[in-house]
């Protein structure tokens, strides 16, 4: 049996990366001779969530309930996952390669005293179980063998497309109330500050996205980029460097640990095009890269490019758009 830790987003739907992990888990289940696919969720799942999980081929949804799961604690979640594993005899325990997913799987593997593979892209063999995963910031791949049971790993974000099962089923909810030791609740979230409003929906569905990376230079370096976004009726998408440095909010991040976009046009400015960023923008129909470095992966992979400083190029584009508009209006 294959057990997938599923995360739900703030709106109470199954997170896209969890749907990808379920898709990966299902292909594994099929390769293993149609073994069952179960999910673990934290808290009682909304009917919507149960329905989506059924559509992805999940048999049982194990819901971890009880006061221990009120505030996030990685150790408690892992204890819950292993409780379900003990009850179901799962041979594979997996999650999406999100911060939570990687953390809970690392706890799970440490407690079960087995290896864990982070950010897996594909599997190439079942016996011995062999996976290929991202290493060196995505610049290289590692083939890794996981010979112990349970096999524990996470799936890199957007490594596979989320696809519902051919025949949707109805998932069955199983309420679980594992006992959680006090020691597993010592490192626990005691407070969460107001969530940022999640505006990533408009980014994911945008027809045009203007991208900004480290090349923006600072939190104050976005004025021209925001003006271009406005002029194109676009959304702004950024690299992880930009969110890590606190220049822009996380919901604007594009990539493996951010949103996946599929606009008609993506205009990444000052973004190098690391594989984890590419994972989120590769389905853009046309890419126009603006970068000082003609050799940057984003430039070599783009459809079009302008080589230059975004702080010169973007204002010039804005001026040209405004000039043509004024001209058009006057004509």
């Amino acid at each position: 049996m294959i057990l997938v830790l599923v995360e739900t987003d703030l709106a109470g739907t199954v997170a896209e990366v969890s749907r990808e992990a379920l898709t990966f888990g299902r292909s594994l289940a099929e390769a293993g001779g149609d073994v069952p696919l179960d999910a673990v969720v934290v808290g009682e799942p909304a009917p919507d969530v149960v329905e989506q999980l059924g559509a992805f081929g999940v048999r049982d949804v194990h819901a971890l309930t009880g006061a221990a799961f009120d505030g996030y604690a990685g150790a408690a979640w892992a204890a819950g996952v292993l409780h379900v594993r003990a009850g179901t005899g799962a041979v594979v325990v997996m999650a999406a390669g999100t911060p939570r997913g990687n953390e809970v799987m690392a706890h799970t593997a440490a407690r079960a005293d087995v290896p864990m593979a982070a950010n897996v892209l594909s599997f190439s063999g079942l016996a011995p179980f062999t996976v290929t995963r991202q290493v060196v910031g995505g610049s290289a791949l590692e083939e890794m063998r996981l010979t112990q049971r349970p096999v524990v790993f996470t799936v890199a974000g957007h490594a596979v497309d989320a696809r519902p099962a051919g025949q949707p089923g109805t998932a069955n909810v199983v309420l679980e109330r594992p006992e959680i030791a006090a020691a597993d609740l010592v490192a626990r979230v005691v407070s969460t500050e107001d969530p940022e409003p999640d505006l990533s929906g408009s980014l994911r569905s945008a027809k045009v996205v203007v991208g900004a990376g480290r090349g923006a230079g600072s939190a104050d370096g976005f004025a021209d980029l925001l003006e271009l976004t406005e002029l194109l009726g676009a959304s702004l998408g950024v690299s992880r460097v930009v969110t890590s440095l606190g220049w822009r909010p996380h919901h604007e991040q594009v990539g493996q640990t951010g949103s996946r976009i599929s606009p008609d046009l993506y205009v990444p400015c000052g973004i190098s095009g690391a594989i984890q960023h590419w994972a989120g923008c590769s389905s853009a129909k046309t890419i126009l890269a603006i970068n000082t470095d003609a050799e940057a992966p984003m430039v070599t992979r783009a459809t079009y490019a302008v080589i230059g400083d975004l702080h010169e190029v973007v204002p010039a584009i804005n001026a040209e758009i405004k000039r043509r508009r004024a001209h058009g209006a006057g004509a």
């Binding site: 070599t300 992979r301 302008v306 230059g308 190029v313 010039a316």
Partner: peptide, 19 residues
Amino acid sequence: SVQVLGKGAEAAPAVVDLF
């Protein structure tokens, strides 16, 4: 197979043509 539209600010008209 990238097509370079130009260098620096001078590329702006070509970019807007593309838009």
